[in-house]
């Protein structure tokens, strides 16, 4: 392995970008391929498929054997709102293998007691997201109902291409939200990416059931996400 490639691979991983370390098992030559880099032919198809599934493995293409080691950033969930749903979602997300962060500037909600052992930040999303930016491997879940708190992170989630963007609220609440996000300059297609009402439609009633619906919706979006650079 080329030392320069190891540095490049680690830099991409640290920056939370999806990459593949490709090794020709015949001659040992290798390269690092970023998601969105154009690779033609059957090898390109294998690369696209590996990026989607996250599965590493050996592929045969062009009469050669390649090893594709896929490095996807670990998926994480950022929840805006330390509410009852978030308490249930935080527990379930951990079981499902997601990192989760809860952000809520309202200190009455964001208490250690309500979220023991959970990464909880009692501050405004504007401030928190500056240090911890959203990205394509992050799901943004906005559940405060309060435009003062929810709107900025929702707007950021659309701008940074979060793989999932969900917002709690009735259709009426959401219609007003659409107007505000439009005023912020987001197009119709971007705004349509927001899951609202939030979560899969499973008739969820209790906060814990709504958390199940949200988590299932997040998994569906993660596993079926379109690739960067793959067009609309």
């Amino acid at each position: 392995m080329d030392p320069y490639l190891l540095r490049k691979l680690n830099a991409e991983r640290t920056a939370r970008r999806a990459v593949i370390h490709l090794t020709d098992l015949g001659d040992g030559r290798d390269r690092v391929i970023r998601e969105g880099d154009p690779v033609a032919g059957p090898l390109g198809e294998a690369i696209a498929s590996a990026l989607r599934s996250g599965k590493s493995g050996v592929v045969e293409a062009e009469d050669r054997k390649f090893f594709l080691n896929v490095h996807l950033p670990p998926a994480r969930i950022v929840v805006i709102g330390a509410v009852h749903i978030s308490q249930a979602l935080a527990q379930m997300a951990k079981v499902a293998g997601f990192d989760i962060t809860i952000i809520d500037p309202r200190t009455a909600f964001a208490t250690e007691e309500r979220f023991a052992g959970i990464d909880l930040v009692a501050d405004w999303p504007e401030d928190v997201l500056k240090a911890r930016p959203l990205d394509a491997y992050t799901a943004l879940v906005a559940v405060t109902h309060d435009p003062k708190i929810d709107d900025f992170p929702l707007s950021q989630a659309l701008a940074t291409g979060c793989f999932y963007v969900g917002a709690l609220g009735s259709r009426k609440t959401h219609a007003k939200r659409v107007e505000r996000l439009t005023a912020l300059g987001h197009g119709e297609a971007a705004i349509a990416r927001i899951s609202a009402p939030i979560g899969l439609d499973i008739g969820a009633a209790s906060p814990a059931e709504i958390a199940v619906a949200i988590l299932a919706d997040i998994v569906a979006h993660l596993r079926r996400r379109p690739l960067l650079g793959a067009g609309p």
Binding site: L6, D99, T101, R132
Partner: peptide
Amino acid sequence: MNATANDMLDPLTIAE
């Protein structure tokens, strides 16, 4: 948000 503890044990980080 970066898991510093994990980075300490990450083989590729250690290799570098």
